[in-house]
Design a protein around this nucleic acid. Structure first.
Lengths: 202, 202
DNA sequence: TGTACATCAGTGAACGCGCGTTCACTGATGTAC
DNA sequence: TGTACATCAGTGAACGCGCGTTCACTGATGTAC
């Protein structure tokens, strides 16, 4: 991998190193110098590509939101074949993302990153959230209007359950015999039944 | 507050200072020296009472779990007047705790504290968890056995939803017009209806 | 194809800083007589 | 009640360390001719 004096693509290499360090030691468990050293490069070299540590984490998060948004859009696939199927697919995609990209996930949701100060990152994050909201709204539309929860509430419930399940596993707090996938599917299933969106028998 | 050479109760003063710093700057947003300085004391003085930073955080968490367990036990109050009422009271207690003791909450659930290496803290944490499990089990027992979810699953769902709602607000990710209390109550309510533990009308 | 030169990614030395931790010490407190 | 003394909580100076950041530099790469 050594390329000699010039690295080739140090910027992305630093992002990749940060990802591994974050996944291994938590979102704040690494330093700029550590990242530089791991990438076989002088700390000063980092400044050719990033304004500092915070800037590096923001880029990790940005790439994460980008992947996440793409995954969600793919899962949603325009609401086909049915609002319910599309909704459930986004739920599974959420979990699959957290499982497959833990470093990204932590940088996005657990690093204390200030999205307000990072409009570029916030923009990509909104793209992902828009898909979730659309999936929720499409499903809610199947309910008669007077039994339909407000879109923001429905969305918040689903996010809370999804995020809660992920956290439970990321922090090793789960000792039950159920996989996160099982927990999320059953949890959301029961919730949807409570709304009358799934038939009570099963 | 200055007591002169001797502080009086530096140990607890350091815990209190840590609580404020954690609540203000996140679970890893403070240093031993900072805590000492805030308590108007030399960094070296801290070592009279704690083995180090980690040990201080562990004590914060321990006190948090202690308060938490007491709150939960009070809310549960032996399952009276009904399993459902007791269960819902513990849910509200969870939220009330997070809101009233954010520093404790963060030290307990977001500091990356290793409970395995802190058996004393783990023991208190288990006391709190036992109440939650009891409340969940008591409620689940009202269902016919063949429609009853496994206790561990029920418990995990409720924890996920509760924790997810808290996280959403702690991280400022919530822009909906609903309070955490509203979100949790409605979310759990819909979930319980899905289980057949609440009547479908309302 | 070969050479001269511009570009700029990464070096390595240097800096000031705050951290965690240690140590011999000092002075406040409480207690024995 | 008063005095001598033991205890021990907190001091302050010192240390080595790794951090973030800067700077003049060097050498690899690519391009113009």
């Amino acid at each position: 991998m050594k390329k000699g004096y010039h690295h080739g693509n140090l910027r992305q290499a630093l992002v990749d190193v940060a990802l591994e360090l974050i996944a291994a030691q938590g979102p704040n468990g690494f330093t700029l110098s550590e990242a530089a050293k791991t990438a076989d490069v002088t700390p000063a070299a980092v400044y050719r590509h990033f304004a500092g540590r915070e800037d590096l984490i923001a880029e990790v998060a940005r790439q994460g939101f980008d992947i996440f948004a793409a995954l969600m859009e793919f899962a949603y696939s325009g609401g086909k074949p049915s609002p319910l199927a599309a909704f459930e697919a986004t739920g599974r995609a959420y979990l699959a993302f957290a499982r497959k990209y833990p470093g990204h996930y932590m940088a996005m949701f657990e690093s204390g990153l200030n999205l307000g100060a990072r409009p570029q990152v916030a923009e990509v994050a909104l793209r992902a959230k828009a898909v979730q909201d659309m999936a929720a709204a499409g499903l809610a539309a199947q309910l008669p209007e007077d039994r339909r929860p407000p879109a923001a509430m429905f969305s918040a419930h689903v996010w809370a359950m999804s995020h809660g399940v992920v956290e439970q596993f990321m922090r090793g707090m789960n000792k039950s015999p159920f996989s996160p996938e099982d927990l999320l599917e059953t949890g959301i299933g029961i919730y949807l039944r409570g709304l009358g969106l799934l038939s009570p028998d099963r």
